[in-house]
């Protein structure tokens, strides 16, 4: 490479950097620095007022050996994620396949399914909780009308509170993922289906051998987004159950919020946040490892 083209490259690089600089600066100041501060804070004791005191691994020792709420929250987070993610994924794909067919009123149904995603979470949560009101809600009225004597008490029961919240999360999110799947489905070549049906493949065989493999990159994307979103979710619990009854719907992010802003233990909250971060990073890495095999034919 001669001198002239080198300087041109450098100039081009500088221009490129100048474009990303404003965003990078914002990211660095408002996200990266606080993350590092939070990491440091996780080894300290700080109540937002006085001195920041270095206490080594005490926060982590407390978390693993003494804080029962941490384990409950961890268990709830895993429960919430493990159920929410596959259910949302399956429903979104099912609906997308349905909405991809030349159905009468398709646009209307698509809009209806997408609506919960664009509506405000607070409004959606209020409607959901009214539907599932244990005494006066329509859901229990219907259940009782069809002969179920003791319908679940939904958000007012430790057993059913989490499924109620999972239902809300799925309902709210599936419309969005349906749209993502729809886009993917429309990218699948019609020729493949035509060839398959000429060869006498059934609908199920077409799904297993054509649709599913063709949308795996989308599935992977949705899987990743969903896992991260469910792991760090706390807003739904905050609005609906405040982590209750008891600690039945207390998830890790809610525990972090409580520890930091209610109990003012910012150091300890940072330590829990770091554990949550580590868990998500590990899961993401495993997923990427898996993705190579998952989409190897592409």
């Amino acid at each position: 490479m001669d001198k002239k083209s080198k300087s041109l490259t450098r100039r081009k690089t500088l221009v490129a950097y100048s474009f990303i600089l404003p965003n990078l600066l914002g990211f660095f100041i408002f996200t990266f620095v606080p993350i590092v501060f939070s990491l440091l804070l996780s080894f300290c004791e700080w109540n937002s007022g006085g001195e920041i005191k270095f206490i080594g691994l005490d926060n982590f020792i407390r978390m693993f050996s003494k804080d029962n709420s941490f384990w409950i929250a961890l268990k709830n987070t895993i429960y919430y994620t493990v159920v929410t993610v596959p259910v949302t994924l399956a429903l979104a794909l099912f609906l997308a396949i349905l909405m991809n067919k030349p159905l009468k009123g398709r646009v209307f149904f698509r809009s209806v399914l997408f609506f919960p995603y664009v509506a405000s979470l607070v409004a959606i949560a209020v409607v959901w909780m009214a539907l599932f009101n244990p005494d006066r809600g329509p859901v229990n009225s219907i259940l009782m009308a069809i002969g179920i004597e003791n319908p679940p008490r939904w958000a007012a029961s430790t057993t059913w509170a989490m499924p109620t919240i999972i239902g809300l999360t799925v309902w709210k999110g599936m419309g969005y993922y349906m749209i993502v799947y729809l886009a993917a489905l429309q990218g699948v070549s019609r020729d493949l289906y035509e060839a398959a049906s000429l060869d006498g493949a059934t609908r199920w065989q077409q799904f297993v051998n054509i649709t599913w493999p063709c949308v795996t990159p989308t599935t992977f994307y949705i899987l990743m987004m969903l896992i991260v979103a469910t792991f760090k979710s706390y807003d739904i619990m905050y609005i609906t159950t405040q982590g209750g009854p008891g600690e039945a719907t207390k998830v890790l992010a809610y525990h972090i919020y409580n520890t930091a802003f209610v109990s003012s233990q910012f150091g300890y909250a940072s330590a829990i946040a770091m554990i949550l971060l580590a868990m998500i990073v590990v899961i993401t890495l495993i997923q990427f490892k898996f993705e190579k095999r998952f989409t190897s034919y592409l």
Binding site: I35, S38, Y257, F261, F266, A269, A273
Partner: peptide, 9 residues
């Protein structure tokens, strides 16, 4: 994690 960090910020 933003909201907490902002407090710290």
């Amino acid at each position: 994690c933003g909201s907490k960090e902002e407090a710290v910020q």
